[in-house]
């Protein structure tokens, strides 16, 4: 079944945005970050991009969704860069952060202790589930790539990851979840 081939089930703008978030949230944030150099700002740009998607004609934009999203995201990121150069001084940034109105962690690197904790919970999963979790989140493979690595079907991979994440959520303590 195509996305829009049933007129009674035509995709609404809300559904289009939800689908766009699912498919493009992460790559768009990475893209915006190459322009604005900051993860929090990149998230803001992407949030704004998705909000603007509501204004579009679903029937038309659906086909060229990726192109539309990347274009608007890029335009918004460049716009933010321009505005910040004009409006934000170093002094403002620091004083704002001292006052707690912004929380701007610069870079998140590995927190060894936390990582070890998470690994210990992954180790409690059945071996096949732990393997796909490692391939998906440590190696960054897609379902298709995991399928090629393991010889399992993408359907099986999906089931294993789904089950593994549910189990992990049960195992993880509140401060990690």
């Amino acid at each position: 079944m195509g996305v829009n081939n049933d007129k009674n089930m035509a995709e609404t703008s809300s559904e289009l945005v939800e689908r766009a978030i699912s498919e493009f949230e992460s790559p768009l944030i990475g893209y915006a970050k190459t322009i604005v150099h900051d993860l929090d700002r990149a998230r803001d740009v992407v949030q704004d991009t998705f909000i603007r998607l509501y204004q579009q004609d679903v029937g038309k934009v659906s086909e060229g969704l990726k192109s539309w999203l990347y274009t608007v995201c890029r335009n918004r990121a460049l716009d933010m860069l321009r505005k910040e150069k004009r409006m934000v001084s170093m002094e403002d940034v620091v004083i704002d952060s001292q006052h707690g109105e912004v929380d701007s962690p610069a870079t998140i690197t590995v927190d060894h202790e936390r990582t070890e904790q998470v690994k210990s919970y992954i180790a409690r999963l059945p071996e096949n589930q732990a393997t796909v979790i490692i391939l998906k989140f440590e190696k960054g493979y897609s379902y298709q790539e995991i399928s090629e690595q393991t010889g399992l079907s993408t359907g099986n991979i999906g089931f294993l990851i789904h089950t593994a994440i549910k189990r992990l959520r049960e195992l993880l303590p509140d401060d990690l979840r």
Binding site: K33, L39, A42, I108, Q117, V118, K119, I122, F137, E138
Partner: peptide
Amino acid sequence: TIGGGEVH
């Protein structure tokens, strides 16, 4: 954590 990177 295990991805060792930023959360996009």
